[in-house]
Simulated assay, not measured.
Amino acid sequence: MPLGQITPDRPQPPVGWRRSAARLPILLFRCGLGWVFGGRLLLLHHSGRVTGLHRRVVLEVVEYDPADGSWVVASGFGPRAAWYRNLRANPKTVIQVGNRHHAVTAHFLTSDDGAELMARYACRHPRTARHLCAFMGLPSDGSAAGFREVGRTIPFVRLDAGPGACPP
Results as ranks from 00 to 15, higher is better:
L3E: 10
G39Y: 03
P66S: 11
G4S: 11
H102E: 14
P13Q: 04
V50N: 12
G34W: 00
P66Y: 10
A134E: 13
R19T: 01
K92Q: 13
P168E: 08
R55W: 05
V50P: 00
R23H: 13
E63N: 12
C123Y: 04
T110Y: 07
A119G: 06
L43A: 05
L53C: 09
R152V: 08
T7K: 12
L109E: 11
L42Y: 01
R10A: 15
N90I: 02
H131V: 14
D65M: 02
I26W: 01
V50M: 05
H102K: 10
D141W: 08
P168W: 09
G98F: 02
D160Y: 05
F156M: 04
Q12E: 13
T128G: 02
R120H: 11
V150L: 13
W71R: 03
T7Q: 12
D65P: 04
G162A: 10
S143I: 07
A134N: 11
T153E: 09
C166A: 15
T7R: 13
P79M: 05
Q5R: 13
T128E: 14
F147R: 01
G34A: 00
P13A: 03
E149G: 07
G4F: 09
V58H: 07
H101D: 09
P155R: 02
P163T: 06
P163E: 13
D68T: 12
S111T: 15
P11Q: 08
E60S: 12
L109V: 09
G4K: 04
G16T: 06
R49Q: 11
A122Y: 04
L28I: 03
R152I: 05
P14H: 09
H125I: 00
T7Y: 12
E63A: 14
F77Y: 15
Q96R: 15
G114Y: 03
F156N: 05
S70W: 02
R120Y: 00
V62C: 12
R18T: 03
Q96A: 10
R49V: 12
V15Q: 15
A129Q: 04
D113C: 08
A74I: 09
A129C: 10
D160Q: 15
D9W: 08
T110D: 13
A103F: 00
M136R: 14
E116M: 05
L28P: 00
V61I: 14
L43Y: 06
L3G: 06
V58N: 07
A145K: 11
A89I: 05
P168K: 03
R120L: 09
A22V: 08
L132V: 13
P66M: 10
P91R: 02
G34Y: 02
M136I: 02
A22R: 03
S70T: 13
F108C: 09
M136H: 15
Y84P: 02
R130M: 12
P66R: 10
G16Q: 06
A106G: 06
Y84C: 04
P168C: 07
